[in-house]
Design a protein around this nucleic acid. Sequence first.
DNA 1: AAGGGATGTCATGTC
DNA 2: AAGACATGACATCCC
Length: 461
Amino acid sequence: MDLTWQELMAITELQELEAPNETPFECNAYHSYEPVVSFGGLGAGQPPTHTIPPGCDVNTTSGFEGHCSEVMPACPLPGGTTEALYGMARSQLPCRLLPSGPHPLHPPLADHMGMVGAPEVPQPEILGNPQGHNCLPLGFGHGPYKQPVTPDDLESDSGLSLGSSPPLASPGNAANVGAPSYACVDVGGLGYSDRDHMEVEAGAEHSGVKARANRFYPVDHQPTMSSYSYPAPPASYFNSVGGFSPIPTQLLQQQPTLPRRSQVLPPPQHETHLNGSGLAGNHNDLCCGPYGRTKGAADNPLSRDERRAMALKIPFPLHKIINLPVDDFNELLSKFALSDTQLALIRDIRRRGKNKVAAQNCRKRKLENIVHLEGELGQLRVQHEHLVRQRAEYQRTLALARCQLSDLCAEVFSKLRDEHGQPYSPQDYSLQQTGEGGIFLVPRNGGGIEAELKAQNFLAH
DNA sequence: AAGGGATGTCATGTC
DNA sequence: AAGACATGACATCCC
Protein backbone atom coordinates (compact mmCIF):
# COMPACT_ATOMS: atom_id res chain seq x y z
CA MET A 1 0.00 0.00 0.00
CA ASP A 2 2.65 2.42 0.94
CA LEU A 3 4.55 1.69 -2.13
CA THR A 4 1.52 2.03 -4.27
CA TRP A 5 0.62 5.23 -2.59
CA GLN A 6 4.07 6.61 -3.12
CA GLU A 7 3.83 5.72 -6.71
CA LEU A 8 0.52 7.37 -7.02
CA MET A 9 1.82 10.45 -5.34
CA ALA A 10 4.74 10.49 -7.66
CA ILE A 11 2.41 10.34 -10.56
CA THR A 12 0.34 13.05 -9.07
CA GLU A 13 3.33 15.23 -8.67
CA LEU A 14 4.24 14.61 -12.18
CA GLN A 15 0.97 15.91 -13.30
CA GLU A 16 0.94 18.73 -10.85
CA LEU A 17 -2.36 17.83 -9.55
CA GLU A 18 -3.84 18.08 -6.20
CA ALA A 19 -4.54 15.25 -3.95
CA PRO A 20 -7.78 13.56 -4.68
CA ASN A 21 -10.94 14.58 -3.08
CA GLU A 22 -11.97 11.51 -1.46
CA THR A 23 -15.54 11.01 -0.79
CA PRO A 24 -16.06 7.99 1.26
CA PHE A 25 -18.76 5.97 -0.13
CA GLU A 26 -21.07 4.06 2.01
CA CYS A 27 -20.63 1.62 4.40
CA ASN A 28 -23.28 0.86 6.70
CA ALA A 29 -21.64 -0.27 9.78
CA TYR A 30 -22.68 -3.74 10.34
CA HIS A 31 -24.08 -4.25 13.69
CA SER A 32 -22.27 -6.59 15.85
CA TYR A 33 -24.12 -9.56 16.95
CA GLU A 34 -24.68 -9.87 20.56
CA PRO A 35 -24.59 -13.35 21.82
CA VAL A 36 -28.02 -14.67 21.92
CA VAL A 37 -27.46 -17.02 24.72
CA SER A 38 -27.55 -15.53 28.10
CA PHE A 39 -25.97 -17.44 30.81
CA GLY A 40 -27.17 -15.33 33.60
CA GLY A 41 -29.52 -17.97 34.84
CA LEU A 42 -27.09 -20.72 34.73
CA GLY A 43 -25.55 -22.44 37.63
CA ALA A 44 -28.92 -22.70 39.13
CA GLY A 45 -28.86 -24.53 42.38
CA GLN A 46 -26.19 -24.52 44.91
CA PRO A 47 -24.45 -27.75 44.54
CA PRO A 48 -25.20 -30.00 47.42
CA THR A 49 -22.53 -30.36 49.92
CA HIS A 50 -23.88 -33.39 51.68
CA THR A 51 -21.68 -36.25 52.34
CA ILE A 52 -23.09 -39.58 51.60
CA PRO A 53 -22.68 -41.71 54.63
CA PRO A 54 -20.82 -44.91 54.47
CA GLY A 55 -22.82 -47.68 52.96
CA CYS A 56 -24.94 -45.40 50.92
CA ASP A 57 -25.22 -46.41 47.32
CA VAL A 58 -24.76 -43.45 45.15
CA ASN A 59 -26.35 -45.23 42.31
CA THR A 60 -29.20 -42.99 41.47
CA THR A 61 -31.34 -45.88 40.48
CA SER A 62 -31.17 -47.50 43.81
CA GLY A 63 -34.22 -47.50 45.96
CA PHE A 64 -34.39 -46.20 49.44
CA GLU A 65 -33.99 -49.73 50.69
CA GLY A 66 -30.41 -49.62 49.73
CA HIS A 67 -27.65 -48.90 52.06
CA CYS A 68 -25.25 -46.15 51.94
CA SER A 69 -21.96 -47.81 51.57
CA GLU A 70 -19.67 -45.03 50.68
CA VAL A 71 -19.11 -41.44 51.14
CA MET A 72 -20.41 -39.34 48.37
CA PRO A 73 -17.52 -38.34 46.27
CA ALA A 74 -16.85 -34.73 46.33
CA CYS A 75 -18.37 -33.28 43.27
CA PRO A 76 -16.37 -30.64 41.48
CA LEU A 77 -18.77 -27.85 41.62
CA PRO A 78 -19.08 -25.96 38.45
CA GLY A 79 -19.90 -22.86 40.31
CA GLY A 80 -16.33 -21.93 40.68
CA THR A 81 -15.65 -22.34 37.06
CA THR A 82 -18.86 -21.30 35.55
CA GLU A 83 -18.06 -17.69 35.53
CA ALA A 84 -14.82 -18.30 33.87
CA LEU A 85 -16.39 -20.64 31.46
CA TYR A 86 -19.07 -18.24 30.52
CA GLY A 87 -16.96 -15.26 30.67
CA MET A 88 -15.89 -16.00 27.18
CA ALA A 89 -19.41 -16.00 26.05
CA ARG A 90 -19.10 -12.86 24.06
CA SER A 91 -18.42 -13.75 20.56
CA GLN A 92 -15.61 -11.86 19.11
CA LEU A 93 -16.54 -10.62 15.76
CA PRO A 94 -13.70 -9.73 13.59
CA CYS A 95 -13.23 -6.07 13.32
CA ARG A 96 -12.54 -6.37 9.68
CA LEU A 97 -16.14 -7.02 9.12
CA LEU A 98 -17.36 -4.00 10.84
CA PRO A 99 -16.49 -0.80 9.29
CA SER A 100 -17.04 1.81 11.82
CA GLY A 101 -17.75 5.40 11.75
CA PRO A 102 -19.80 7.37 9.39
CA HIS A 103 -19.38 6.73 5.78
CA PRO A 104 -20.91 9.38 3.75
CA LEU A 105 -22.29 7.77 0.77
CA HIS A 106 -22.02 10.57 -1.53
CA PRO A 107 -20.25 13.75 -1.90
CA PRO A 108 -22.43 16.73 -1.58
CA LEU A 109 -25.03 16.80 -4.16
CA ALA A 110 -23.71 20.05 -5.41
CA ASP A 111 -20.55 18.27 -6.11
CA HIS A 112 -22.35 15.58 -7.90
CA MET A 113 -24.44 17.82 -9.87
CA GLY A 114 -21.84 20.38 -10.42
CA MET A 115 -20.57 18.41 -13.27
CA VAL A 116 -23.86 18.53 -14.93
CA GLY A 117 -23.58 21.57 -16.95
CA ALA A 118 -25.34 22.27 -20.11
CA PRO A 119 -26.80 19.03 -21.18
CA GLU A 120 -25.31 19.23 -24.56
CA VAL A 121 -21.90 19.99 -23.25
CA PRO A 122 -20.62 17.13 -21.27
CA GLN A 123 -18.43 18.17 -18.48
CA PRO A 124 -14.84 17.36 -18.45
CA GLU A 125 -14.93 15.79 -15.05
CA ILE A 126 -16.88 12.91 -16.19
CA LEU A 127 -14.12 10.56 -16.87
CA GLY A 128 -11.39 12.48 -15.35
CA ASN A 129 -9.50 11.64 -12.33
CA PRO A 130 -8.70 13.84 -9.46
CA GLN A 131 -5.17 12.72 -9.53
CA GLY A 132 -4.73 13.91 -12.94
CA HIS A 133 -2.81 10.99 -14.08
CA ASN A 134 -6.07 9.47 -14.77
CA CYS A 135 -7.43 12.46 -16.44
CA LEU A 136 -6.54 10.92 -19.65
CA PRO A 137 -9.54 9.85 -21.51
CA LEU A 138 -10.68 6.43 -20.84
CA GLY A 139 -9.22 4.55 -23.62
CA PHE A 140 -9.85 7.34 -25.96
CA GLY A 141 -7.32 9.09 -27.99
CA HIS A 142 -4.03 7.85 -26.85
CA GLY A 143 -2.76 4.78 -28.27
CA PRO A 144 -1.28 2.56 -25.67
CA TYR A 145 -4.54 1.53 -24.23
CA LYS A 146 -7.30 -0.09 -26.00
CA GLN A 147 -9.83 -2.31 -24.48
CA PRO A 148 -10.24 -5.65 -26.00
CA VAL A 149 -13.41 -7.25 -26.94
CA THR A 150 -14.30 -9.84 -24.47
CA PRO A 151 -17.22 -12.15 -24.64
CA ASP A 152 -18.78 -10.64 -21.63
CA ASP A 153 -18.88 -7.33 -23.30
CA LEU A 154 -21.19 -8.71 -25.80
CA GLU A 155 -24.06 -9.48 -23.59
CA SER A 156 -26.48 -7.52 -21.61
CA ASP A 157 -29.92 -7.78 -20.24
CA SER A 158 -30.40 -4.45 -21.80
CA GLY A 159 -28.72 -5.64 -24.86
CA LEU A 160 -25.66 -3.89 -23.68
CA SER A 161 -24.22 -5.08 -20.56
CA LEU A 162 -24.93 -8.65 -19.86
CA GLY A 163 -22.14 -10.84 -18.91
CA SER A 164 -20.69 -12.25 -15.85
CA SER A 165 -17.02 -11.97 -15.85
CA PRO A 166 -15.12 -9.21 -14.25
CA PRO A 167 -13.42 -6.70 -16.39
CA LEU A 168 -10.90 -8.16 -18.62
CA ALA A 169 -7.79 -6.43 -19.46
CA SER A 170 -6.87 -6.24 -22.96
CA PRO A 171 -3.97 -8.32 -23.86
CA GLY A 172 -3.45 -5.64 -26.32
CA ASN A 173 -3.10 -3.03 -23.74
CA ALA A 174 0.52 -3.20 -24.23
CA ALA A 175 0.55 -4.65 -27.61
CA ASN A 176 -1.74 -2.16 -29.15
CA VAL A 177 0.12 0.94 -28.44
CA GLY A 178 -0.85 3.40 -30.97
CA ALA A 179 -3.88 1.51 -31.97
CA PRO A 180 -7.03 3.47 -32.51
CA SER A 181 -8.84 4.22 -29.36
CA TYR A 182 -12.44 4.35 -28.48
CA ALA A 183 -12.53 7.94 -29.31
CA CYS A 184 -11.96 7.06 -32.85
CA VAL A 185 -15.00 4.90 -32.93
CA ASP A 186 -18.22 6.61 -33.38
CA VAL A 187 -20.64 4.59 -31.43
CA GLY A 188 -22.34 7.26 -29.56
CA GLY A 189 -24.89 8.19 -32.07
CA LEU A 190 -25.54 4.65 -33.02
CA GLY A 191 -27.31 2.10 -31.07
CA TYR A 192 -24.78 0.34 -29.04
CA SER A 193 -24.72 -3.26 -29.86
CA ASP A 194 -22.59 -6.19 -29.25
CA ARG A 195 -21.48 -5.98 -32.74
CA ASP A 196 -20.59 -2.39 -32.31
CA HIS A 197 -18.74 -3.26 -29.29
CA MET A 198 -16.91 -5.96 -31.04
CA GLU A 199 -15.92 -3.60 -33.69
CA VAL A 200 -14.91 -1.05 -31.21
CA GLU A 201 -12.79 -3.40 -29.29
CA ALA A 202 -11.72 -5.62 -32.05
CA GLY A 203 -8.19 -4.44 -32.12
CA ALA A 204 -7.11 -5.72 -28.83
CA GLU A 205 -8.97 -8.91 -29.15
CA HIS A 206 -7.26 -9.72 -32.32
CA SER A 207 -4.03 -9.70 -30.57
CA GLY A 208 -4.91 -13.23 -29.72
CA VAL A 209 -3.45 -12.93 -26.32
CA LYS A 210 -5.49 -14.50 -23.64
CA ALA A 211 -4.70 -12.89 -20.44
CA ARG A 212 -6.46 -11.35 -17.55
CA ALA A 213 -6.17 -7.75 -16.84
CA ASN A 214 -4.61 -8.10 -13.52
CA ARG A 215 -2.09 -10.38 -14.87
CA PHE A 216 -0.74 -7.40 -16.61
CA TYR A 217 -1.50 -4.57 -14.35
CA PRO A 218 -0.69 -4.03 -10.79
CA VAL A 219 -3.74 -4.37 -8.74
CA ASP A 220 -4.06 -2.89 -5.40
CA HIS A 221 -6.07 -5.39 -3.54
CA GLN A 222 -7.29 -3.23 -0.85
CA PRO A 223 -9.51 -5.26 1.34
CA THR A 224 -11.72 -2.44 2.22
CA MET A 225 -15.37 -2.12 2.29
CA SER A 226 -15.12 0.39 4.96
CA SER A 227 -14.65 3.37 2.83
CA TYR A 228 -16.13 3.59 -0.52
CA SER A 229 -14.51 6.65 -1.71
CA TYR A 230 -16.03 8.79 -4.30
CA PRO A 231 -13.92 11.80 -4.68
CA ALA A 232 -14.82 14.80 -6.57
CA PRO A 233 -15.43 14.18 -10.18
CA PRO A 234 -12.31 13.78 -12.10
CA ALA A 235 -10.94 16.05 -14.66
CA SER A 236 -12.34 15.20 -17.92
CA TYR A 237 -13.78 12.37 -19.65
CA PHE A 238 -15.09 14.18 -22.57
CA ASN A 239 -11.99 16.09 -23.05
CA SER A 240 -10.65 12.74 -23.69
CA VAL A 241 -13.41 11.73 -25.90
CA GLY A 242 -13.01 14.68 -28.06
CA GLY A 243 -9.31 14.75 -28.33
CA PHE A 244 -7.28 13.15 -25.70
CA SER A 245 -4.11 14.45 -24.45
CA PRO A 246 -1.28 12.10 -24.93
CA ILE A 247 -0.06 10.04 -22.12
CA PRO A 248 2.86 11.60 -20.42
CA THR A 249 5.81 9.53 -21.18
CA GLN A 250 6.73 9.61 -17.55
CA LEU A 251 3.65 7.71 -16.77
CA LEU A 252 4.44 5.09 -19.24
CA GLN A 253 7.84 4.77 -17.84
CA GLN A 254 6.83 4.88 -14.26
CA GLN A 255 5.82 1.44 -13.48
CA PRO A 256 5.28 0.98 -9.85
CA THR A 257 6.74 -2.04 -8.31
CA LEU A 258 4.23 -4.65 -8.82
CA PRO A 259 2.15 -5.67 -5.92
CA ARG A 260 0.26 -8.85 -5.81
CA ARG A 261 -0.79 -10.13 -9.16
CA SER A 262 1.20 -7.46 -10.76
CA GLN A 263 2.66 -8.07 -14.08
CA VAL A 264 4.90 -6.30 -16.41
CA LEU A 265 2.54 -4.31 -18.50
CA PRO A 266 1.93 -0.72 -17.62
CA PRO A 267 -1.42 0.13 -16.27
CA PRO A 268 -3.72 2.01 -18.47
CA GLN A 269 -3.47 5.64 -17.79
CA HIS A 270 -7.14 6.06 -17.44
CA GLU A 271 -7.74 3.28 -15.13
CA THR A 272 -10.76 3.33 -13.05
CA HIS A 273 -10.93 1.70 -9.72
CA LEU A 274 -14.27 0.27 -10.32
CA ASN A 275 -13.68 -3.37 -10.26
CA GLY A 276 -16.14 -4.99 -12.44
CA SER A 277 -18.77 -2.50 -13.16
CA GLY A 278 -17.79 0.83 -11.97
CA LEU A 279 -18.50 0.19 -8.38
CA ALA A 280 -16.51 1.53 -5.62
CA GLY A 281 -15.67 -1.91 -4.66
CA ASN A 282 -13.29 -3.67 -2.50
CA HIS A 283 -10.13 -3.29 -4.37
CA ASN A 284 -9.46 0.31 -4.90
CA ASP A 285 -11.74 2.62 -3.19
CA LEU A 286 -9.50 5.46 -2.51
CA CYS A 287 -10.94 7.93 -4.82
CA CYS A 288 -12.64 8.19 -8.05
CA GLY A 289 -11.15 8.75 -11.36
CA PRO A 290 -12.67 8.66 -14.73
CA TYR A 291 -16.07 7.11 -14.61
CA GLY A 292 -15.81 7.28 -10.94
CA ARG A 293 -12.68 5.35 -10.59
CA THR A 294 -10.38 5.75 -7.73
CA LYS A 295 -6.79 6.56 -7.80
CA GLY A 296 -6.00 3.15 -6.51
CA ALA A 297 -7.72 1.77 -9.50
CA ALA A 298 -5.16 3.21 -11.71
CA ASP A 299 -3.75 -0.23 -11.79
CA ASN A 300 -6.94 -1.84 -12.93
CA PRO A 301 -8.18 -2.15 -16.40
CA LEU A 302 -11.39 -0.60 -17.37
CA SER A 303 -14.33 -2.53 -16.31
CA ARG A 304 -16.75 -3.82 -18.80
CA ASP A 305 -19.32 -1.23 -17.91
CA GLU A 306 -16.76 1.49 -18.03
CA ARG A 307 -15.80 0.48 -21.47
CA ARG A 308 -19.40 0.37 -22.47
CA ALA A 309 -20.02 3.72 -20.92
CA MET A 310 -17.14 5.11 -22.85
CA ALA A 311 -18.26 3.52 -26.01
CA LEU A 312 -21.67 5.02 -25.62
CA LYS A 313 -20.24 8.27 -24.37
CA ILE A 314 -22.19 8.24 -21.22
CA PRO A 315 -21.77 11.78 -20.02
CA PHE A 316 -21.31 11.18 -16.31
CA PRO A 317 -19.19 9.02 -14.13
CA LEU A 318 -20.20 5.60 -13.10
CA HIS A 319 -20.07 6.35 -9.46
CA LYS A 320 -22.81 8.85 -9.93
CA ILE A 321 -24.81 6.47 -11.97
CA ILE A 322 -24.60 3.97 -9.22
CA ASN A 323 -24.70 6.02 -6.09
CA LEU A 324 -26.87 8.98 -6.70
CA PRO A 325 -30.24 8.84 -5.05
CA VAL A 326 -32.91 8.03 -7.49
CA ASP A 327 -34.20 11.54 -7.63
CA ASP A 328 -30.82 12.99 -8.27
CA PHE A 329 -30.12 10.23 -10.68
CA ASN A 330 -33.23 10.97 -12.67
CA GLU A 331 -32.48 14.63 -12.56
CA LEU A 332 -29.06 13.92 -13.88
CA LEU A 333 -30.48 11.86 -16.69
CA SER A 334 -32.92 14.57 -17.53
CA LYS A 335 -30.13 17.01 -18.09
CA PHE A 336 -28.74 15.04 -20.94
CA ALA A 337 -30.24 13.98 -24.15
CA LEU A 338 -29.64 10.31 -23.93
CA SER A 339 -30.58 7.67 -26.36
CA ASP A 340 -32.52 4.66 -25.34
CA THR A 341 -29.41 2.63 -25.66
CA GLN A 342 -27.55 4.94 -23.38
CA LEU A 343 -30.36 4.95 -20.88
CA ALA A 344 -30.54 1.21 -20.92
CA LEU A 345 -26.85 0.93 -20.32
CA ILE A 346 -26.95 3.50 -17.57
CA ARG A 347 -29.72 1.69 -15.78
CA ASP A 348 -27.94 -1.58 -16.18
CA ILE A 349 -24.83 -0.06 -14.76
CA ARG A 350 -26.78 1.32 -11.87
CA ARG A 351 -28.47 -1.97 -11.20
CA ARG A 352 -25.28 -3.95 -11.42
CA GLY A 353 -23.39 -1.48 -9.35
CA LYS A 354 -25.91 -1.53 -6.58
CA ASN A 355 -26.19 -5.24 -6.72
CA LYS A 356 -22.46 -5.60 -6.52
CA VAL A 357 -22.39 -3.63 -3.34
CA ALA A 358 -25.34 -5.57 -2.06
CA ALA A 359 -23.60 -8.82 -2.82
CA GLN A 360 -20.49 -7.68 -1.08
CA ASN A 361 -22.47 -6.64 1.94
CA CYS A 362 -24.40 -9.84 1.86
CA ARG A 363 -21.24 -11.85 1.87
CA LYS A 364 -19.84 -9.87 4.69
CA ARG A 365 -22.96 -10.46 6.68
CA LYS A 366 -22.79 -14.10 5.92
CA LEU A 367 -19.26 -14.30 7.20
CA GLU A 368 -20.24 -12.35 10.27
CA ASN A 369 -23.08 -14.71 10.88
CA ILE A 370 -20.77 -17.65 10.60
CA VAL A 371 -18.38 -16.10 13.08
CA HIS A 372 -21.25 -15.29 15.38
CA LEU A 373 -22.72 -18.76 15.18
CA GLU A 374 -19.38 -20.36 15.80
CA GLY A 375 -19.03 -18.27 18.92
CA GLU A 376 -22.51 -19.18 19.98
CA LEU A 377 -21.77 -22.82 19.37
CA GLY A 378 -18.78 -22.60 21.64
CA GLN A 379 -20.90 -21.00 24.31
CA LEU A 380 -23.52 -23.67 24.03
CA ARG A 381 -20.91 -26.36 24.36
CA VAL A 382 -19.67 -24.77 27.52
CA GLN A 383 -23.21 -24.52 28.75
CA HIS A 384 -23.82 -28.15 27.93
CA GLU A 385 -20.75 -29.24 29.83
CA HIS A 386 -21.89 -27.21 32.79
CA LEU A 387 -25.35 -28.77 32.72
CA VAL A 388 -23.89 -32.25 32.50
CA ARG A 389 -21.80 -31.61 35.56
CA GLN A 390 -24.77 -30.14 37.33
CA ARG A 391 -26.89 -33.16 36.55
CA ALA A 392 -24.25 -35.48 37.92
CA GLU A 393 -24.14 -33.44 41.07
CA TYR A 394 -27.90 -33.58 41.48
CA GLN A 395 -27.81 -37.31 40.96
CA ARG A 396 -25.30 -37.65 43.71
CA THR A 397 -27.48 -35.57 45.97
CA LEU A 398 -30.47 -37.69 45.15
CA ALA A 399 -28.56 -40.84 45.89
CA LEU A 400 -27.49 -39.42 49.21
CA ALA A 401 -31.08 -38.59 50.12
CA ARG A 402 -32.17 -42.08 49.23
CA CYS A 403 -29.48 -43.57 51.39
CA GLN A 404 -30.53 -41.43 54.29
CA LEU A 405 -34.12 -42.41 53.78
CA SER A 406 -33.19 -46.05 53.64
CA ASP A 407 -31.25 -45.78 56.86
CA LEU A 408 -34.13 -44.02 58.53
CA CYS A 409 -36.57 -46.68 57.42
CA ALA A 410 -34.29 -49.38 58.72
CA GLU A 411 -34.17 -47.62 62.05
CA VAL A 412 -37.96 -47.35 62.17
CA PHE A 413 -38.43 -51.00 61.35
CA SER A 414 -35.94 -51.93 63.98
CA LYS A 415 -38.18 -50.33 66.58
CA LEU A 416 -41.56 -51.49 65.34
CA ARG A 417 -43.15 -54.57 66.80
CA ASP A 418 -46.35 -56.30 65.93
CA GLU A 419 -48.90 -57.53 68.40
CA HIS A 420 -46.75 -60.58 69.05
CA GLY A 421 -43.73 -58.53 69.78
CA GLN A 422 -42.12 -59.56 66.53
CA PRO A 423 -40.43 -57.00 64.31
CA TYR A 424 -41.90 -56.13 60.95
CA SER A 425 -39.93 -57.27 58.03
CA PRO A 426 -38.92 -54.52 55.58
CA GLN A 427 -39.41 -57.13 52.89
CA ASP A 428 -43.08 -57.49 53.82
CA TYR A 429 -43.89 -53.93 54.81
CA SER A 430 -43.07 -50.47 53.70
CA LEU A 431 -43.50 -47.09 55.31
CA GLN A 432 -45.65 -44.53 53.59
CA GLN A 433 -46.25 -40.97 54.60
CA THR A 434 -49.47 -39.09 54.10
CA GLY A 435 -49.71 -35.51 53.14
CA GLU A 436 -50.64 -34.64 56.69
CA GLY A 437 -47.51 -36.16 58.05
CA GLY A 438 -49.00 -39.41 59.20
CA ILE A 439 -46.89 -42.47 58.56
CA PHE A 440 -48.43 -45.82 57.77
CA LEU A 441 -47.01 -49.27 57.75
CA VAL A 442 -48.25 -50.80 54.55
CA PRO A 443 -47.90 -54.42 53.56
CA ARG A 444 -46.05 -54.76 50.31
CA ASN A 445 -48.55 -57.25 49.05
CA GLY A 446 -51.18 -54.57 49.07
CA GLY A 447 -52.98 -55.75 52.20
CA GLY A 448 -54.62 -53.52 54.80
CA ILE A 449 -52.89 -51.11 57.01
CA GLU A 450 -51.48 -52.75 60.05
CA ALA A 451 -50.40 -49.79 61.96
CA GLU A 452 -50.36 -46.09 61.86
CA LEU A 453 -47.53 -44.40 63.45
CA LYS A 454 -47.43 -40.81 64.09
CA ALA A 455 -44.48 -38.99 62.78
CA GLN A 456 -44.11 -37.27 66.02
CA ASN A 457 -43.70 -40.59 67.72
CA PHE A 458 -40.93 -41.52 65.37
CA LEU A 459 -39.25 -38.27 65.96
CA ALA A 460 -39.66 -38.66 69.67
CA HIS A 461 -37.86 -41.92 69.55
C1' DA B 1 -5.04 -30.24 -13.14
C1' DA B 2 -8.22 -29.95 -9.30
C1' DG B 3 -10.09 -27.45 -5.55
C1' DG B 4 -11.30 -23.55 -3.00
C1' DG B 5 -11.78 -18.62 -2.21
C1' DA B 6 -13.10 -14.20 -4.11
C1' DT B 7 -15.84 -11.62 -6.97
C1' DG B 8 -19.30 -10.16 -10.33
C1' DT B 9 -23.69 -11.00 -12.17
C1' DC B 10 -28.40 -12.57 -12.64
C1' DA B 11 -32.86 -14.04 -10.96
C1' DT B 12 -35.99 -13.72 -7.59
C1' DG B 13 -38.26 -12.34 -3.53
C1' DT B 14 -39.25 -8.83 -0.06
C1' DC B 15 -40.04 -4.30 1.65
C1' DA C 1 -45.38 0.38 -9.67
C1' DA C 2 -40.70 1.44 -9.08
C1' DG C 3 -36.71 1.23 -6.69
C1' DA C 4 -33.61 -0.57 -3.26
C1' DC C 5 -32.07 -4.31 -1.00
C1' DA C 6 -31.05 -9.31 0.26
C1' DT C 7 -29.63 -13.61 -1.15
C1' DG C 8 -29.06 -18.06 -3.63
C1' DA C 9 -27.01 -19.72 -7.64
C1' DC C 10 -23.86 -19.62 -11.21
C1' DA C 11 -19.65 -18.33 -13.84
C1' DT C 12 -15.14 -16.88 -13.88
C1' DC C 13 -10.67 -15.85 -12.28
C1' DC C 14 -6.85 -16.60 -9.44
C1' DC C 15 -3.92 -18.89 -6.21
